[in-house]
């Protein structure tokens, strides 16, 4: 899986440690979006033919195509269901999150 990871955020200890002006590092994530989700997409890898439609249409880009089978980054999936709806073979099911 090649997706940006959460970085540990430390409050600057002194005023000098703050960035100059309103700037910050790019590719810097300190919180995940998994809590937004009510349903999570689960791929049936036996049915999946790797057409990559879900990879293309995901607004959050959480579907990784680099491995032998598709992988979902559940840290950032918001459970919108676009992938399941767009999948022509219907091999993505939306499963209720239980916690």
């Amino acid at each position: 899986m090649d997706r940006p990871k959460v970085k540990k955020w430390q409050e600057p200890a002194s005023i000098d440690a703050y960035p100059l002006g309103a700037t910050c590092d790019s590719d810097h994530l300190v919180s995940i979006n998994a809590g937004w989700r009510t349903f999570k997409p689960v791929i049936d890898h036996d049915k999946c033919v790797m057409c990559l439609r879900c990879f293309l249409v995901c607004p959050d880009g959480v579907i990784d195509k680099s491995g032998p089978q598709l992988e979902i980054d559940y840290d950032y999936c918001k459970g919108c269901g676009v992938c399941a709806h767009e999948c022509k073979l219907k091999c993505i099911t939306m499963v209720k999150e239980e916690k």
């Binding site: 997706r3 607004p59 959050d60 880009g61 950032y76 676009v82």
Partner: peptide
């Protein structure tokens, strides 16, 4: 495969 816009807080299903 590399994402250049990732982990944003847009609503789910944002076009």
């Amino acid at each position: 495969n590399k994402e250049l816009f990732y982990g944003h807080k847009a609503c789910g299903g944002c076009g």
